[in-house]
Design a protein around this nucleic acid. Structure first.
Lengths: 119, 119
DNA sequence: GCTATATTCAACCCAACGGTTCATTAACGA
DNA sequence: TCGTTAATGAACCGTTGGGTTGAATATAGC
């Protein structure tokens, strides 16, 4: 059973693990852009950027339109909300030391249950 | 030039991209645990879990003590704060539609500059 | 010293990743 | 129609990732 693309959250984290893809998202935060426009600042080939865009699209982080021969990409940040929710469960572990930790434990365990689809 | 482990944030995202590792973090949120204790719920081998722990350790998400032949692991969630900070820059894109977007653009572009170590 | 337990190291396997190059598809413009 | 531009598809390559099994290391207890 392959690990890849096992679930939405994993796909999102995996997509964000590449700095080029994060830079692409930052670019798209300024507005729609075509593949060529997106690729311009990078040293890698256009095809490599096209692959990155496909990864981002499958993670739901971008969506693409059709305008003549251009396929403008735009940011769809909804999956980042899931990331935010996930990481928020651990907030008590870094910003208030270990205060109220016990109170958060059940939340984390409960919340992570949809997560134990491993094995 | 390899992409892997290029920077701290990438390493953290990559570590979080595996559901087994996220489950390990959830387990450690309940307190310290030894490798055997951590491995118990999973179907994979102990060695596989040991590798996962190494990944988490290199990402700074866990630290390990030494007590006799046990190496208890505990959660060190600080890198998650960086994740939280990163994802927060995009909050306006999902929770308030596109309101005040222009105002956030410069923040995102500025914040992402330490990020453009690609290429 | 011997044995059991806890953990890691090492070698290997296979699938996936990020990159390349070359070829193809699609739409525009003259 | 022809040439140009935009973008993707396909084949390939080297590296990494997650998994395994088997051996090694370290510590405790007798």
């Amino acid at each position: 059973m392959p690990t890849t693309q096992q679930d939405q959250l994993s796909a999102t984290f995996a997509a964000l693990a590449d700095p080029t893809r994060r830079a692409i998202l930052a670019r798209l935060a300024t507005g729609e852009a075509t593949v060529n426009e997106i690729a311009e600042p990078f040293e890698v080939s256009l095809q490599a950027v096209s692959k990155h865009l496909k990864v981002l699209e499958r993670a739901g982080l971008i969506s693409r339109g059709r305008s003549a021969q251009w396929r403008p990409c735009r940011l769809t940040a909804e999956p980042l909300e899931d990331v935010s929710d996930w990481v928020s469960r651990y907030r008590a572990f870094w910003d208030s030391g270990f205060d109220r930790l016990d109170r958060r434990l059940r939340e984390i365990q409960k919340g992570q249950n949809g997560e134990h689809d491993d094995h």
